[in-house]
């Protein structure tokens, strides 16, 4: 039996919440937006050739695992990351690390996660949670999505750690092994902002970043004609689900990133960042408006409330705003 003294704190986004909570356990406290920003979590990509749940994939965040990896690296925190072939080995290793007194981050699939809200139990392999102890085949879990601490059995935990399909977790576990004292977060913040700006406006590929939002807008205009009203509303719904559902804290992470900029402006003592955080907040509200109007189309499948052209125009506006914001942010010193 081992049960570490772990403070559960809910978060908007699972991975940055896990990163924050793990670092907090090692006596280094930053906010969730800080972890997200330093980890350069914000992103946009629209991949029409990659179908998820029968509709094109839209993503508002970077690859799973990157937020933790980048944030810890930039902060000079030493970490250990393991993946496994054999499920039993992965559980033995987990026990071993817990007994050494480290809470462990786990990547899991959500379909068989017993404590998860039923409405989210789909095959989604990029969820993150923390194990902080075990007793006689029961594991103590802190999941940043959930209000309270939860538990899971050995069998169930093994199963969700070895869910298969796209982004299969392969038992991935990760934890900080050494957190230095007196970390200077300023350079890490600057690097995080630079990296995010590069991801959003610097990559010369049409489906990514601000260009990707424009591309999606262009595609959206043709959906109704090409796919019929029913399927068009399903495609739109898929974009909105990625934007608003599990773990984005609203508006496809734009709120979290804005909160990060607000905090960064104080820490770095650069007031212009505060202005940009306001622009980011307004931009996030625009995204929220988009999802609100869009959700009405999803409700009345056959007769859309708003034309897809109108929704695409909002996306274009958002793309222009983000392009402007990140061009400015790219120049940070």
């Amino acid at each position: 039996m081992i049960k570490l003294d772990f403070e559960h704190r809910q978060a908007g986004h699972c991975e940055s919440g896990v990163t924050r909570n793990l670092l907090h356990y090692h006596k280094f406290s930053i906010s969730e937006p800080m972890a997200f920003g330093i980890g350069a979590g914000l992103f946009f990509s629209y991949l029409p050739f990659l179908k998820m749940q029968h509709a094109p994939t839209t993503s508002f965040r970077v690859w799973p695992g990157q937020v933790f990896d980048r944030a810890t690296k930039e902060l000079g925190v030493k970490t250990a990351i393991h993946t496994f072939r054999n499920p039993k080995d992965s559980m033995d290793k987990l026990n071993e690390i817990l007994e050494q007194g480290f809470p462990v981050g786990l990547q899991v699939g959500t379909y068989h996660l017993p404590f998860f809200p039923p409405e989210y139990r789909m095959h989604y392999n990029m969820h993150n949670m923390i194990a902080y102890g075990h007793d006689n085949g029961t594991y103590f879990i802190s999941d940043t999505l959930m209000e309270n601490l939860v538990e899971i059995t050995y069998e169930d935990l093994m199963r969700v750690r070895f869910a298969k399909g796209a982004f299969a977790p392969q038992g991935r576990m990760y934890y900080p092994t050494f957190v230095p004292e007196n970390i200077d977060i300023k350079p890490a913040i600057i690097k995080g902002i630079r990296k995010t700006a590069y991801n959003m406006v610097g990559i010369p590929f049409p489906l990514i970043g601000a260009k990707g939002i424009r591309y999606l807008a262009g595609r959206m205009r043709k959906w109704e004609k090409k796919l019929g009203p029913e399927k068009a509303s399903y495609y739109l719904g898929q974009v909105l689900r990625m934007e608003e559902e599990v773990g984005t804290a609203g508006a496809g992470f734009r709120f979290i990133f804005g909160a990060f900029l607000e905090e960064a402006s104080t820490v770095l003592n650069q007031p212009w960042l505060k202005e940009i955080s306001v622009e980011m907040g307004e931009n996030a509200n625009k995204w929220r408006e988009f999802s609100y109007l869009g959700s009405r189309n999803c409700k009345k499948r056959g007769k859309p409330d708003q034309s897809y052209d109108f929704l695409a125009d909002i996306l274009l506006e958002v793309a222009n705003r983000e392009e402007k914001i990140f061009r400015k942010l790219a120049k940070i010193k």
């Binding site: 804290a249 709120f255 804005g258 955080s277």
Partner: peptide, 25 residues
């Protein structure tokens, strides 16, 4: 946890159920 933005209050956090519009999707 959801985040919100307001010009006066800045960024805030609130713990709540998904709003009805998101529940629709």
């Amino acid at each position: 946890v959801f985040y919100h933005f307001d010009k006066e209050k800045g960024f805030t956090q609130k713990v709540d159920f998904q709003n009805p519009n998101n529940q629709v999707i």
